[in-house]
Design a protein around this nucleic acid. Structure first.
Lengths: 225, 225
DNA sequence: TGTACATCAGTGAACGCGCGTTCACTGATGTAC
DNA sequence: TGTACATCAGTGAACGCGCGTTCACTGATGTAC
């Protein structure tokens, strides 16, 4: 197969160098992406510090030596993997709410994030809950990626309560969403730590209910004392 | 000094063997406690996986070889250190509320937990926020210790809203406290991850306000729709 | 188009290092008589 | 009380291992003419 591809390239090389080059870069980029994706999965499964580069590279179908053709250091990979993990959670939530009515969206979003399957499928879960305490010690780039992902989650929640009275400052409007996001992350985290199954489920269910009614209240324009 | 102690023991040995033995065990126990305390501090500062036993032992003023006179494995120490860290957070919160009026207690508790100094002084901070994602991957004993600490925090919060209408089931009464505890942990965690100083402070302040008014609402007996 | 050379993604051995754990040893303390 | 022996907390060297990183090498691909 690789021979065939080579021949095709050979025929085209004089006329479409740019395209050929782009194709080559694309293949390298694809490998790089495979490594980042494997990292996003393995870091969330086992933790950042506990996951070695050799494990990671073999999860991506490569040997460890090739790592430094793509990254300057493990830290660089951590930052990228974190960004990818955050984006994939964002997409999961966005696609879960797609096709539901505006009214159902908040409930669907909460039910997805605070589900037992999200709790148990850690390798694909929200990186903030899966890696939180390690992210707090990570370098600036990684924390910046995590911050962006967090703000996306806040925004997604704020979008569900945009029927707020317009006289409220946008900062004020985001207040409930900011706390709701922290509650979701904290609840998912605690549901994983706790050794009692019923308690674990109560944490998730209660958070779901309280956020729904709390943001729902905002939605109907109720003002707190 | 140790010679003097020995002489005293020498004089007593015939009559009070039991006491002499107890004294010896006490000294060993004190050393053991020093190791656990150092671990509780260092784990929270650097993370569990990232902290080596040699670092830990030298932080306790010992060399690494003596570790296994006190513990069977690192995991055993992790579980104990986690329990100690959780207990110390409980004491910090309890002593902060001591001397304040019943009415002020919730606010004081929230202000203490969600303060920037708690955010920044990680080595003495709440283990659930400082070690959360590592605790979720820890063995059963460690997670059980974390669970006990979490439930204590929940109880402490529930105690501030014990003026609830009595017809509510105790389970229902704890619902708000359970979510409030998760919110506090999630907020403290996120305030550490985020790269924007103002955002970090907004996370803490907003959580404080919303929990205060949310549990305060429960306190006055208001019923949600 | 064919040929000679350059590039560079990927391999696998090797680097020094720190990890958790083990062990022979020490010396202070406790025990027995 | 004094003496001989046992215990055991603590030391520091050593174990095998996996870590992040480097490097000489390979071979497929791309480039130049």
């Amino acid at each position: 197969m690789s021979t065939a591809i080579r021949q095709v390239r050979g025929r085209r090389e004089v006329n479409v160098k740019a395209v050929t080059m782009r194709k080559s870069k694309q293949e390298t980029a694809r490998t790089r992406k495979r490594i980042v994706d494997a990292a996003a999965t393995e870091f969330r499964r086992r933790g950042i510090v506990a996951t070695g580069l050799a494990d990671l590279m073999s999860a991506a179908g490569l040997t460890h030596g090739g790592f430094y053709r793509h990254f300057d250091s493990k830290d660089e990979l951590v930052a990228e993997a974190c960004a990818v993990a955050m984006a994939s959670t964002g997409e999961t939530l966005a696609s879960a709410t797609r096709g539901t009515t505006k009214r159902q969206r908040l409930r669907t979003l909460l039910a997805t994030y605070l589900s037992t399957s999200h709790r148990d499928k850690r390798h694909g879960a929200c990186a903030l809950a899966a890696l939180g305490s390690e992210l707090a010690r990570a370098d600036k780039q990684t924390r910046a990626a995590a911050t962006r992902g967090f703000l996306e989650l806040v925004q997604l929640l704020a979008d569900q309560s945009d029927e707020l009275p317009s006289e409220l400052a946008p900062e004020e409007a985001n207040k409930g969403a900011l706390v709701a996001a922290s509650t979701m992350i904290g609840s998912l985290l605690m549901s994983r730590i706790v050794t009692d199954r019923k308690l674990s489920e109560a944490i998730l269910r209660n958070a779901e209910d309280l956020i729904a009614s709390s943001l729902g209240e905002l939605k109907s324009g109720a003002v707190r004392p």
